[in-house]
Amino acid sequence: MQYYLGVDIGSVSSNFVLLDEKLKLQEKVYMRTNGNPVEAIKKGYYKISNNMTSDKLIRGVGCTGSGRTLASILLGADIVKNEITAHGIAASYLYPGVRTIIEIGGQDSKLIILKDEVIQDFAMNTVCAAGTGSFIDQQAARLNIPISDFGDTAATSSQAVRIAGRCGVFAESDMIHKQQMGYPVSDILMGLCEALVRNYLNNLGKGKKIEAPIVFQGGVAANKGIKLAFEKILKMPVDVPEYYNVMGAVGVAILAKEAVSKSGKTNFRGHNFIQTGDFASNSFECKGCPNYCEVAMIKRDGKVLAYSGDKCGKWETTLHNLAVV
């Protein structure tokens, strides 16, 4: 079998998928980044490649997510793409004719509008955490409810309480107030779900026409309460794909196949490169001008692989081993 590897290194989770020649998903790994993307990439690659006998099997690699450049340095990517394009590709492949993609991850959220399989408009929220997974994480911790039970408990509610969702801090004080009043936990949880959805739609949906079919993906799509809240507020059915939490990786793996079929060869560095090397990253302050850029560098066994973070490109361009977008 020959595979295409899709890698999505996000702020909260790192996702890996292997698609076969027919773009069928064969393996997937969903794990926490835990603030150490280099380790996450090594571990994730190890897990997903475990069942393969030789690295020759990987015909193409694609990277996305906020850690996409780093991943491309470690793995040798054929394509490095932003998350918006990757999510759009995956959803329009799985759901031809999809018009709206709701993607909510750990620290950001996206709204993508498509027509005829092409992205027409998008919005991305990185300003306020009240519309993202971390908001749910925080409140679940406060209520002592495991995050995995959050959605199911919320879904049992018949009468959600109203919680102000404009700001995460105010939502919390509002929620405590409702607890003190004696509302059942399930109704409060459902109230939080609706608060998040209202925040999301106010933030991202402004001026955008949300039309069915709607696909809901990203880690938060696991939460049934949020899905129900979207359906209630939008008055439209919302689909959650089977592999909702690795859709970015699926999208970029599809793009990797496209890139390799054009170039005819892969940049994949191979099994040994990633598994046997000792990777270290550190940074220094460039004193070349008063900008004092913090330049980060990635080393393998003491040899510098790549620089990043300099505004002028002085360091970045010293090495030409990066797969460019």
Binding site: L23, K81, N82, Y95, V118
Partner: peptide, 29 residues
């Protein structure tokens, strides 16, 4: 990058086999 990607895919003849009508098939499993 996403905005530029979007415009490229919109304006330049789409070469992606998976997007071309008819070739798109639905299952990934």
């Amino acid at each position: 990058e996403a905005f530029v990607d979007m415009l490229k895919r919109k304006n330049f003849a789409c070469t992606n086999e998976y997007v071309e009508k008819g070739v798109v098939n639905c299952s990934i499993t």
